[in-house]
Amino acid sequence: MNVLDDGHTARRWLPRFLSPRHAVVNYAIMRWQGIGDADTPGADAECRLHIACDGLCEQVPIAAAAFAAFGPPVVIACADWACEWLEQRTIGDAHGLSVAHFEQALALAPSERYAALLVLDALAGALENSRLDQDRPYLGS
């Protein structure tokens, strides 16, 4: 039992923070269909999620997902993981992503849950905030 209350002992997600693969700055995509923003002022954290897809129906696959984030390391790790998870899935799957998924995949401590909620908020914004023009599907990178 750690009585020194530091909250830094677990952090299985650390490699993701140190080397994220889904930072939007590394993507050459010009037009993202969905972009959502959210922030958690109490943690001085912000997250922006970008989705590239050919429509918003349930079965539409997500071609690319990327993030920009500012905040404690766990926020960047959650955003990166979410993008990795999304890229293999569909819009329908995206709607079903929950905090429990993050907790399990990243072994989040209770004090780190807010980061998952932040990313989910940004994702919800991206799914809603579609810039999809039905006649002009996205041009792949």
Binding site: L14, F17, L18, D44, A45, F70, G71, P72, P73, I76
Partner: peptide
Amino acid sequence: GVHGDALLTGLTEG
């Protein structure tokens, strides 16, 4: 332009 926790972690864990 950087968050303090992220900077410290990046430096101490990189």
